[in-house]
């Protein structure tokens, strides 16, 4: 493989993607019977640019989150990194391999967990699937025992192993999926929506496990998720992607600071029942997001936050005041809704 920018690849990164693009040719079909017939006789095609010129790198031990709405190109990128798809253009190196030519040696170094698909055998206890993977990855008996014991204790799977998979809860199943995928000790994990559909407790358990697992084995994790808590709890860095383009690569806090145009002033009001502050009185200072005496939340323009705070303190009986960023979900949603480029400008 010839690489133009050599130093880009000589650095010890686990994943490097350089100007990665994937274009699909999709058949266009007009609605109705006539459209179906025309598509059959004279098919027309349209190019869909699922991923465009995406460049990034991931260092060993990082947990990086892919963010973006449905159809943004997250899964397509993940598939190119795991060798399931050939890119239309660009270069990829993952764990010192070119994914689609890496063969078994490459596949032993990665794990792919898909939140909406399972490899567990439905009618049997999960341990049968583990044994199958032991055979597939050729794991020595002793290493298998030790590895399984570690994962079982980290994921608190004790009494689950003997039950048929069909009797397990969604959360237990995902824990077993993770166990099955990590038995061969891959240094690199690709997780597509690992907490999809799980309840809060199970989500939390998965997150705690991933943090603990990473710190024990210095594993590198690339995950996609719709749950912002996954991202805030796990990721040291986010890659934000929309319409196939990489829009942001960096720390989540820095992203929020860059694109959030507002700040939230959270107030605890003082004063007695006689001279209560009203919502109308607060509205003068900014947009009232919530008001339930004595608590109130105001949203103001980012640059106005210090001055407004000072005016609030002077004008009203304030017991406590703090300035916060708006919730991340809102910032991200807002950014995608507005078109990121515009928010970025």
């Amino acid at each position: 493989m010839s690489v133009a920018t050599v130093d880009f690849f000589t650095m010890p990164a686990v994943v490097t993607a350089e100007q990665l693009s994937k274009t699909f040719r999709v058949k266009v079909r007009d609605p109705g019977l006539k459209g179906a017939l025309r598509a059959l006789l004279r098919p027309r095609y349209r190019e869909v640019h699922a991923v465009r010129d995406v460049t990034f790198r991931i260092d060993p031990g990082e947990i990086v989150a892919f963010l973006g709405p449905n159809g943004a190109g997250k899964t397509t990128t993940l598939k190119m990194l795991t060798g399931l798809l050939y890119p239309t253009a660009g270069q990829v190196r993952v764990a010192d391999f070119v994914p689609w030519t890496g063969g078994p040696a490459f596949k032993r170094r990665i794990a792919l967990v898909l939140g909406n698909r399972q490899q567990l055998v439905w009618d049997l206890p999960p341990e049968e699937t583990f044994l199958l993977n032991r055979a597939i990855y050729d794991i020595p008996e002793r290493a298998y025992r030790e590895r399984l014991a570690e994962l079982v204790s980290l994921l608190e799977l004790g009494d689950v192993l003997q039950k048929p998979v069909r009797q397990l809860s969604l959360g237990e199943r995902m824990k077993c999926e993770l166990t099955a995928s990590l038995l061969h000790s891959p240094p690199l994990l690709f997780l597509d929506e690992p907490t999809l559909g799980l309840d809060v407790t199970a989500q939390d358990a998965i997150r705690r496990f991933l943090i603990e697992y990473r710190s024990r084995h210095n594993a590198t994790v690339l995950l996609t998720s719709h749950y912002m808590q996954d991202v805030t709890a796990l990721a040291s860095r986010v890659l934000m992607i929309n319409r196939g383009r990489l829009l942001y690569d960096g720390a989540l806090e820095a992203l929020v600071a860059r694109i959030a145009r507002t700040k939230r002033i959270e107030l605890v009001l003082g004063g007695t029942d006689g001279n209560r502050v009203t919502a109308d009185a607060l509205a003068v200072f900014g947009e009232v997001k919530a008001f339930h005496f004595p608590n109130a939340v105001l949203e103001v323009r980012r640059e106005d936050a210090p001055a407004t705070s000072a005016r609030l303190l002077a004008a009203l009986p304030v017991a406590d005041l703090s300035i916060e960023d708006p919730p991340i979900e809102e910032v991200i949603r807002h950014a995608f809704a507005q078109g990121f480029e515009e928010a970025d400008a």
Binding site: K79, G83, L84, R108, I110, L112, L114, R117, I136
Partner: peptide, 10 residues
């Protein structure tokens, strides 16, 4: 898409 899980195995 179940084939994807097969294709990533060695």
């Amino acid at each position: 898409g179940g084939l994807d899980l097969v294709l990533v195995k060695p």
